[in-house]
């Protein structure tokens, strides 16, 4: 068994008296693609934000590479890249300037060639690279943010609704990219509504409902998770 990279250990998050996450447990090993499926308000984004150190757990812990996120926030953040659901990079900067700026923030500068190669990899048209992001479509902004996440060369990727706003071709390309990164040993944690997409790329899927993991699916050796089973469980509210 490879090392545990992401672990939720009896993770609880509450805002005031309202419980958002309740005793959530899961683990992801190196190279895993762990998808958390759930409806609106299930607690998916809260889970991701807790692992990013943006929301403190009220009980239990969120751990990355064996370290509690809230006790080692800055250290942990250096190991992760994050793709938010609604990507709003700086509208007055172009794609390359945005990427350079955010990489510089993380003290991970990279060469122009690598940035170009990555933008090509995420299929952002070269003629758009020098245009301000304010003129981009949602899909183009998403691709820029994906490129930024890849360029951080982090061993762990957190993706919040990553295919939202992408066209079918781009979704396909993105899924291939995720598979490729996973094969390279990058651990990916994504939250999504997209059952079919998740089944296509993830080797572990958790169903989240009202802040609790109600089901967990594991992919068989050299195969995908059964979409039908996940879909039925998702439609029935969790329990199969």
């Amino acid at each position: 068994m490879s090392e545990i990279v992401i672990q939720a250990d009896n993770l609880c998050v509450a805002v005031g008296s309202k419980k958002i996450l309740n005793n959530v447990n899961f683990i992801a090993h190196k190279g895993d693609v762990l998808a958390l499926l759930g409806g609106n308000g299930a607690g998916k984004s809260t889970t991701i934000k807790t692992f990013l150190g943006l929301i403190p757990p009220s009980l239990g812990s969120a751990q990355i590479l064996g370290q509690a996120v809230h006790q080692n926030t800055q250290l942990v953040r250096q190991k992760v890249a994050y793709l938010p659901e609604s990507v709003m990079l700086y509208g007055h900067l172009n794609a390359i300037e945005n990427i350079r700026y955010f990489l510089s923030l993380g003290k991970k500068p990279t060469s122009e060639q690598v940035i170009h190669a990555t933008l090509e990899k995420v299929a952002l048209q070269p003629q758009a690279w020098q245009r301000p992001l304010g003129e981009y479509s949602k899909g183009m902004r998403q691709k820029t943010a994906i490129a930024l996440a890849l360029l951080r060369e982090a061993p762990i990727l957190f993706l919040d609704e990553p295919t939202s706003g992408l066209d079918p071709v781009a979704i396909d390309e993105f899924n291939q990219l995720v598979t490729q990164l996973s094969a390279q040993g990058v651990t990916i944690f994504m939250v999504t509504h997209d059952v079919y997409g998740a089944c296509h790329v993830a080797n572990r899927i958790g169903l989240l409902r009202d802040g609790e993991i109600v089901d967990m699916f594991n992919a068989p050796e050299n195969g995908n998770i059964d979409t039908e089973a996940v879909h039925v469980a998702f439609a029935q509210g969790g329990r199969t």
Binding site: L54, Y82, P84
Partner: peptide, 18 residues
């Protein structure tokens, strides 16, 4: 308001220094 704060917080290695 622009939806960038979280990405900035995660990407920024210098904490409040930014």
């Amino acid at each position: 308001a622009a939806g960038r704060l979280e990405l900035l917080t995660i990407s920024n290695a210098s904490g409040a220094g930014l």
